[in-house]
Amino acid sequence: MSTVTFKVFRGDQNGGELQDYTVEVQEGMVVLDVIHKIQAEQAPDLAVRWNCKAGKCGSCGAEVNGKPTLMCMTRLDTIDTSKPVTVRPMKTFPVIRDLATDVKWNYEANKKIKPFAPAPNTNWVMFQEDVDRVQEFRKCIECFLCQNTCHVLREHGEKTGFIGPRLLVRTASLEMHPLDVENRLDMLKNEGGIGYCNITKCCTEVCPEHIHITDNAIIPLKERVVDEYYDPVLRFFRRLFGSKKRPELSQAADD
C-alpha cells in the first residue's frame, strides 16, 4: 500500500480549481476507485458520473494527466504515481459539477443525421460481409472521448458546423449499411462539416473500443464526399449510368 496525491478538479459552470487529495492506493486499483475512495473518505460532495465500472457504459470519461480516458479502465500501474496525478473533467463540454460534464450537445447534433431508411418492400436478408464494417461502428459506447479529443471541437469550439468523430462514425454506419437508401453526403459536406476534420487521428487513439474511427469511418466518408462533389470524372460516369443511391426510394421511405 502506498500514498499518492491526486489533484482533482472541483468546480462548476462558473469555474473551479484543482484540489489536492492524498489517498492510500492498493495494487489493481483504477482511477475511478480512487475517486470513489475520495468520495467515501474526504469529499462526499465530489460529483462524478459512473455506472458499469467495466468500460462498457461510457459514463466515467475524464482527463487523467491530460489524457482523455475512461477512469474505470485506467489502472494506476499505467500512470506515474510518483508525481501528483491530475484528474479533470472532459475539456470540450460544459462542466455541470466537478468531474461531471454536460454532453447533451452530442444528442442535439445527432439530429442532423437522417435516420436509417430502407427501400420499400426491402428484402431483409443480409450477408455477413455486407455488415462487417457497420458492426465495427456498432461497438461505440458513446463515451464521447473522441468528441472531447477532436481539436475542432476542443480547441476551436466548432459546435455549430461540425458534428465530430462520434457522429461521423454513426453516419458511416448508416451510409455503409447495405439496405439503406438515404443520401447523407450533402449533410456531411455542409452542416456536418466533414471538411473540418484534418485526419490527425486523435479520435482513434482515444477510443476505448478500438474502433478505427479515422481509417474506417471518416476517410471513407471523405472519399464518398469527393465522389459526389470533387470528382468531375466520376460524377460524369455516375450521371451516365445512374446513382447507386436511389433518391426516389429514399423519398418513398421518408413518406
Binding site: D12, G66, T92, P94
Partner: peptide, 18 residues
Amino acid sequence: MSTKPVIGTDKRLTERQD
C-alpha cells in the same frame, strides 16, 4: 443550449507527462 466549456478557457498547453 450552452456549449461553452468552462475549463476550456484556461491557458494550459497540456498536462501530458510524456
